[in-house]
């Protein structure tokens, strides 16, 4: 087993996911079987293959440095669950 239950808990916490015990067990098993399957790829010799970061054959897609109109404050906040004085309002974050 490459992935422990603790790893699953850690990743779930980073992703802000709340998992119950049963789910943790299930995902530990599933993630392990996925990773084991992917291990097969390691049988290939990739010594001279550069790592792939993009699959679309594009490069250098740029735009000109031109300012265009932004949204209005009302539009920006249209989907905000809560707002105050033009700001998004969020639960207090302690630093």
């Amino acid at each position: 087993m490459k992935i422990s239950k603790k790893d699953v808990e850690h990743v779930a916490n980073l992703a802000r996911l709340h998992l119950d015990e049963q789910e943790k067990e299930n995902y530990t098993k599933q993630l392990n079987s996925i990773l084991e399957y992917m291990e097969k790829l390691n049988l290939l010799d990739t010594e001279d293959v550069p790592p792939t970061s993009h699959v679309i054959p594009l490069k250098n897609v740029f735009r000109e440095d031109k300012v265009r109109d932004s949204l209005s404050n009302e539009e920006v906040l249209a989907n905000a669950p809560d707002a105050e004085d033009g700001y998004f309002k969020v639960p207090k974050i302690i630093e």
């Binding site: 897609v61 440095d65 932004s70 920006v76 033009g86």
Partner: peptide, 26 residues
Amino acid sequence: GDPNTHCCPVCLGLPGVLPVINEKVI
């Protein structure tokens, strides 16, 4: 500037938008 007046769907991270690099940045 007044809060949240220099924003658009791209910098607000709304679904379905596509960022495009400003050539001046490079």
